[in-house]
Design a protein around this nucleic acid. Sequence first.
DNA 1: TCAAACTGGTTTGATACAAAACTAAGTTGA
DNA 2: TCAACTTAGTTTTGTATCAAACCAGTTTGA
Lengths: 163, 163
Amino acid sequence: MDKAEISKGGSARTRVKDDGRPVLLGELENYVGFHLRLAQSASFKAFRRLTGESDLRPGWFAVLAIIHNNPGITPMALSRASGRDKSTITPVLRELLREELVRRSANPADKRSYALFLTPHGEEKLAHLAACAAEHDRELDEIVGDKKQELIRLLRRIVAVLD
Amino acid sequence: MDKAEISKGGSARTRVKDDGRPVLLGELENYVGFHLRLAQSASFKAFRRLTGESDLRPGWFAVLAIIHNNPGITPMALSRASGRDKSTITPVLRELLREELVRRSANPADKRSYALFLTPHGEEKLAHLAACAAEHDRELDEIVGDKKQELIRLLRRIVAVLD
DNA sequence: TCAAACTGGTTTGATACAAAACTAAGTTGA
DNA sequence: TCAACTTAGTTTTGTATCAAACCAGTTTGA
């Protein structure tokens, strides 16, 4: 229908697709944090659309992929690598264990912890999710074009410094 | 003792700060979506650290700023501009009205809707939040350097295309 | 060697969000 | 003009997330 009405060449202006009249974002317009939130939210929604109908939660992908790449990893290391709090990982793992996508084995050297592995079934599901993720990333590639590496570099720096 | 001796110079490997041993992210390493999530989460946490002790919720900032820049805006337009669902806006506004940071006036032309304005008290609080946000954005500026405009352009494109 | 400090993982409590169902008000077209 | 659609805002419900408190096992240092 319409969007991008933009206007007054001044500074802060932005189209907000919907109905004609643009909304002024002011300072927000130039805040990296604000756009980060919008982009992350848009990307997440798009990814969920892709995995959509299947019984796979989008949040499972990173977890499965990391276990796949690091068989025997502990929940703590997984939590750090996936950027989620350890207390967030617990219920995810419980679900994955219940669904038998993941298996765990005790670590005799440290009885508090345990080692995680994908089951063959988990590998299958991961393959499917990875296909969705690859598809999704192709869309993103399309959008960011040859700036992709630069973009990732910047995002990584933000994490490294702020986190 | 340990596991994850991994390394094996293959391709995608990454250190996850904490304890020496690197965790392999594999394909994840090159997924824009993954890094978007990490960066957004890091940025959000940093912002919350800044506003931290005050009684201001970080989520209020965008809402207050947008109302400030668009006096009389409706909740729906606000929801779209701030990138949050209308059902998410409702409780935020309820709180802001209760705290008397925002005031609303009926729209005689459409009885379903209403117009939003900041109260003087709201303007004050916004000023404080804006100071935190500016501070936060300075940190981000530091990190992204002269690539900032390029970064924002890319993030905006992601939103425009995927959303 | 053993008490204190620390660490891995779980539980609990609170917040932020979206989606769907709903209500009330506005718009449209035959 | 009025029934059928559409839109603005709210309510309800479900999920993801973090932080803090907690427990059990491990490390440390006097």
